[in-house]
Amino acid sequence: MADSQDRKWGMVVDIDRCTGCNGCVVACQSENNIPNNLEEHFNQRRAIQWIRIERYWEGEYPNVKARFIPVMCQQCGNAPCEPVCPVYATYHNEEGLNVQVYNRCIGTRFCANGCPYHVRFFNFWEPEWPESLKNQLNPDVTVRSRGIMEKCSFCVQRIRRSTREGERDEVQVEDGDRALSPACVNACPTTALTFGDFNNDSSQVSMMKEEAMANRGKKEGRGYRLLDNLGTEANVIYLKKVDNSAGAVHGH
């Protein structure tokens, strides 16, 4: 177990690859027992999507662009959601994950108010499935009940399972192993998402992060964090969209 504590999970999202197809969204619903988002749930703004694709418009017809950006829990190193929880139901663990403990949560929703990324979701209802659809539920993930918060966990159940099975079979679970990677990463058809261990210098995410962040703010470096000025120290690194018509403009 010792080596598993030295890991620090992170993700790199290449927006230049993302097509906004929503493959990650459906994969996440399937893996994490997220209740079916019915029409009324959307209308009440109470739909749950641990990962979502945000679509932004720039310009107007005919010079119009749509931009896509996948947003999931940023697993902040300095998370605004954590200090506000009165019952320590959300905290930072040694693997860099911002953990939501369902059985501790009492549903104050302070954390959702604190989160600048809007990635925390409250269960306003007891989740319901028709009897037969329950056959699909993933036994590795808790079915959340009414009155508690939930959010992207970087598919911690996959991390746990693959690590344990690796220890059992005495094999090292490599970064990029599909049993370890979150469901969204495995699904993404354009490989816009990369997941791995930031503490392992030879992992793909580490190298991507280093390359992306080395020249931050300069032309060569495409890396940035969402709402970085808030000091959240997010563990999700975004790579800027390349747009030849964007001229010399790049961010702040």
Binding site: M1, Q5, Y91, N93, E94, E95, L97, V99, V101, Y102, N103, R104, V141, T142, S153, V156, Q157, R160
Partner: peptide, 11 residues
């Protein structure tokens, strides 16, 4: 000295 991280058992 096994992990007492919540996410060891709760997820």
């Amino acid at each position: 000295s096994a992990p007492t991280d919540c996410a060891t058992c709760h997820y």
